[in-house]
């Protein structure tokens, strides 16, 4: 699974890097996003709702995203 390390980057960069990585996936595949920006969790959840992707927080700085 591909890991995107966006730690140290502020909104909306982690979401943009996540979205770019997702373009290379086929449905069912996942990536792991690392981010320490406090806006990432709420924004990832909103992004998942808007783009119909599945987002799961696995820790305060670790997010698992699956392409639907």
């Amino acid at each position: 699974m591909k890991i995107i390390d966006s730690r140290g980057k502020r909104c909306p960069i982690p979401i943009i890097e996540c979205a770019q990585a997702m373009c290379e996936l086929v449905p069912g595949e996942s990536i792991e996003l690392l981010s320490d920006d406090p806006a990432t969790l709420p924004d990832l959840l909103a992004w998942g709702r808007m783009t119909n992707n599945f987002v799961e927080a696995q820790g305060p700085e670790t997010f698992h995203i699956t392409k639907k």
Binding site: A39, P42, A46
Partner: peptide, 9 residues
């Protein structure tokens, strides 16, 4: 915005 689940950026 976060509490509503709306995009914050």
């Amino acid at each position: 915005l976060a509490a509503m689940g709306v995009l914050t950026h």
